[in-house]
Simulated scan of single mutants.
Amino acid sequence: MVQSVERALEILECIAHAGGAAHLNEIARETRLKPTTAHNILKTLHALGYVRRREKNTRYYLGDRILNLARVAGNDSGLRRTLRPALEAMAEQTGETVFVAVPSGDEVYFLDAIESLKPLKAASQEGQRTPMVGSAIGLLFLAHIPSLRRRMLGPHADRIGPSIDAEIDATAERGYALDQENYLPGLNCVAVPWIDDGEVRAGFGLSGPTRRLPLETLTELAETMSGIVARI
């Protein structure tokens, strides 16, 4: 076996067995590694998104990349049931196509959706996967999950273009994401985050024809959606 890989996996298992978070000394003790060795491995895992740190907190947590791998391997029926009432409330209050999406690896996975009853509408993408870059929901995850942003944009920034950083920063500042005909001509979208235990776990999106959803309307809908999400 490759020792460095074995040690990294032992550290991840240690954090998992500790309930998803553990201090460095605890990790070193349980894995029988020197604290300096454990720290160096944790630094690499953190850079890759497999563990994360929280502000003013010395513990190491399982990162979004581990959680996304678990999502790919498992099923999201429990999360879907939890978020479905909020999705139904959004559909009823707005009359537009609404959806719930989650980060899955380096893609966006559309977990659930309710299609608008209006003749001119956005189609449901439930069950589909799309690239992280290029949509409002992707911007939302890139803005709220720093390790995902570093991983996605670091090696590919030259191919994606410099404007993406400004869009992500703007999304982070206002708290919700906008897409005005970027993903698809004639279609506008707004997306708001669902935060659980201090971390963005999913995003709610709404999409519809550009002529029905100008910027002013999208901003109003973001407030409506955020209010519904706050009651989950």
Score class of each variant (00 low, 15 high):
residue 133 V to L: 07
residue 165 D to Y: 11
residue 166 A to H: 11
residue 194 W to I: 11
residue 164 I to T: 12
residue 149 R to L: 06
residue 170 A to C: 05
residue 212 R to H: 13
residue 153 L to I: 14
residue 148 L to E: 00
residue 138 G to R: 01
residue 197 D to W: 07
residue 157 A to K: 09
residue 157 A to W: 10
residue 177 A to D: 01
residue 170 A to M: 09
residue 139 L to N: 14
residue 175 G to S: 07
residue 173 E to F: 10
residue 128 Q to Y: 06
residue 155 P to V: 03
residue 146 P to T: 03
residue 160 I to T: 04
residue 127 G to H: 07
residue 151 R to K: 12
residue 187 L to I: 15
residue 205 G to L: 10
residue 144 H to F: 15
residue 148 L to Q: 06
residue 178 L to H: 01
residue 189 C to D: 03
residue 138 G to S: 04
residue 159 R to K: 13
residue 163 S to Y: 12
residue 180 Q to L: 15
residue 175 G to K: 07
residue 164 I to S: 03
residue 190 V to S: 06
residue 161 G to T: 10
residue 188 N to C: 13
residue 211 R to Y: 15
residue 164 I to F: 07
residue 152 M to K: 08
residue 205 G to C: 10
residue 140 L to T: 02
residue 143 A to G: 02
residue 175 G to Q: 06
residue 165 D to R: 08
residue 196 D to T: 07
residue 181 E to N: 09
residue 168 I to E: 00
residue 141 F to C: 00
residue 195 I to G: 03
residue 129 R to L: 11
residue 143 A to M: 06
residue 154 G to H: 06
residue 134 G to D: 04
residue 125 Q to P: 09
residue 174 R to P: 10
residue 168 I to K: 00
residue 196 D to V: 10
residue 177 A to Q: 01
residue 185 P to T: 05
residue 126 E to H: 10
residue 212 R to S: 15
residue 125 Q to S: 12
residue 129 R to E: 10
residue 149 R to N: 05
residue 209 P to F: 13
residue 161 G to M: 10
residue 139 L to E: 05
residue 133 V to F: 05
residue 144 H to T: 14
residue 158 D to H: 13
residue 189 C to M: 10
residue 169 D to M: 08
residue 193 P to F: 02
residue 183 Y to C: 01
residue 182 N to D: 08
residue 174 R to E: 05
residue 127 G to F: 03
residue 170 A to W: 08
residue 174 R to V: 15
residue 133 V to P: 02
residue 202 A to V: 14
residue 155 P to F: 02
residue 184 L to S: 12
residue 184 L to Y: 10
residue 134 G to F: 02
residue 167 E to I: 05
residue 143 A to Q: 02
residue 173 E to Q: 14
residue 182 N to I: 13
residue 211 R to W: 14
residue 169 D to A: 15
residue 195 I to W: 11
residue 157 A to E: 12
residue 150 R to V: 09
residue 129 R to G: 00
residue 128 Q to W: 08
residue 208 G to M: 09
residue 190 V to D: 05
residue 177 A to M: 03
residue 197 D to Q: 14
residue 126 E to K: 15
residue 157 A to G: 03
residue 206 L to R: 08
residue 157 A to P: 04
residue 162 P to E: 01
residue 186 G to S: 10
residue 194 W to F: 15
residue 134 G to I: 07
residue 202 A to S: 13
residue 209 P to T: 13
residue 197 D to T: 08
residue 204 F to V: 09
residue 132 M to P: 05
residue 141 F to R: 00
residue 131 P to M: 08
residue 212 R to L: 15
residue 171 T to F: 00
residue 132 M to H: 05
residue 150 R to M: 11
residue 145 I to W: 00
residue 178 L to E: 01
residue 154 G to D: 07
residue 188 N to H: 15
residue 155 P to I: 03
residue 201 R to T: 13
residue 211 R to E: 11
residue 125 Q to L: 15
residue 156 H to I: 07
residue 175 G to T: 08
residue 148 L to D: 00
residue 180 Q to G: 05
residue 204 F to K: 05
residue 155 P to T: 04
residue 170 A to L: 12
residue 196 D to I: 05
residue 145 I to G: 00
residue 179 D to K: 03
residue 198 G to E: 07
residue 149 R to S: 04
residue 187 L to D: 02
residue 142 L to V: 13
residue 189 C to Y: 04
residue 151 R to T: 13
residue 187 L to S: 04
residue 165 D to C: 04
